[in-house]
Nucleic acid binder design. Structure first.
Length: 106
DNA sequence: AAGGTGACAGGGT
DNA sequence: TACCCTGCCACCT
């Protein structure tokens, strides 16, 4: 791995379809920097292929990064297309969809 | 060089 | 759950 950003991309790509995780979980798993750094790294991911940034939300399950997508509704739309319901910019049953990088992927 | 900013989190109230 | 405050750390003026 070259840098912090690449590591964040790698972890983000491992998030299973239909699942979500948090900035803090990624930062914790990488044991590097803080959650803010993860947010910054994902901001860099705009335009990078195969980085499902829409599966990363904040600790409350809110789609705080939606305004950074090409369109403000894309993030929610992508999640719903994977079976994750979103209401008022928040993931419904967030805890049920939560996935931690440390747990085995399915 | 110093201070402001931000796709955040955790703890207290 | 929500709101507020503080810690966080790379980047950009």
């Amino acid at each position: 791995m070259e840098n912090y950003v690449e590591k964040v991309y790698a972890v983000t790509r491992r998030i299973p379809r239909g699942r979500v995780t948090t900035y803090g979980a990624i930062a914790d798993y990488l044991a590097l920097g803080s959650a803010r750094m993860v947010g910054w790294a994902l901001y860099q991911s705009i335009g990078v292929a195969n980085v499902p940034a829409h599966r990363v939300v904040n600790r409350r399950g809110e789609l705080t990064g939606r305004l950074h997508f090409p369109t403000p509704t894309m993030m929610q739309q992508l999640l719903e297309s994977e079976g994750v319901r979103v209401t008022n910019n928040r993931v419904v049953d967030f805890e049920r969809h939560f996935w931690h990088p440390a747990q085995a992927e399915e």
